[in-house]
Every structure is written in C-alpha cells, then in structure tokens.
Amino acid sequence: MTRRRLRRRALLADAYGVTTAIWTVAALTAVTGLIVAVRMSTCATPPPPS
C-alpha cells in the first residue's frame, strides 16, 4: 500500500489513540453483528400452520 492510503486509514488512531481506534472497530463489529442476528431471527421464523 502507498503511504497515502496507510495514512488515511490511521486517522482515528492518530486523533484519539490506538486503544480508542481498536475499541471503535470492536463496537462497530458488535453492532453490525447484532443487526444481522436480529434480522436473521425475524426471517428464520417459520410461518404459522394454516
């Protein structure tokens, strides 16, 4: 990767620190996982028998 692309990816870490950047990525991952879990559970329920 070029230096410019690497620099752009490190903006959060540069501004707030590496620990904050890692926790931010972890929180985003958890939130998206919860969204997927909720959406899958609503789609996975079988229709009621007629």
Rank of each mutant, 00 (worst) to 15 (best):
A27Q: 13
A10G: 09
C43T: 12
L6A: 10
T29G: 07
A21E: 01
L28P: 01
D14K: 15
S50H: 14
V25F: 09
A15N: 06
L34T: 08
A13N: 00
T45H: 01
L12A: 07
W23L: 15
R9M: 04
G33A: 10
L12K: 02
A37M: 05
P48I: 02
V25C: 04
R8A: 15
D14Q: 15
A21Y: 00
I22L: 15
T42S: 03
T45Y: 01
R4L: 11
A10D: 09
G33D: 06
L11E: 15
A37V: 04
S50G: 13
R5P: 01
A44P: 01
P46R: 12
C43K: 13
P49R: 08
P47N: 05
T2E: 07
T2C: 10
V31W: 07
C43A: 10
T2S: 15
L28T: 03
V36K: 05
L34G: 08
R3K: 15
T19Q: 12
A30T: 12
R9Y: 01
R3F: 04
P48A: 04
T42K: 04
D14S: 15
R3H: 10
L11I: 15
A13R: 01
A27F: 13
A26I: 14
V38Y: 08
T32A: 06
A26L: 15
V38H: 10
V25L: 12
A15Y: 06
T20R: 12
V38T: 12
D14F: 11
A10P: 01
T20E: 11
S50F: 14
R7K: 12
A37P: 02
R5H: 08
A15I: 04
A21D: 02
P47T: 05
L11N: 11
A15E: 12
A44F: 01
V38E: 09
L28K: 05
L12M: 13
M1K: 11
P48G: 02
C43H: 10
P48Q: 02
T2K: 11
L6W: 07
T42P: 00
T32R: 09
I22W: 12
P46S: 03
G33R: 10
A27R: 14
A21N: 01
A37L: 09
R9K: 11
T42G: 03
T20V: 13
V18S: 08
C43V: 11
P47W: 10
A27W: 12
R9Q: 11
G33C: 08
V18E: 12
T29W: 07
T29D: 05
D14C: 12
T45P: 00
R39T: 11
S41T: 04
V25H: 07
T20F: 10
A26Q: 09
L34S: 06
M1S: 13
R8N: 14
T20S: 05
V18Y: 04
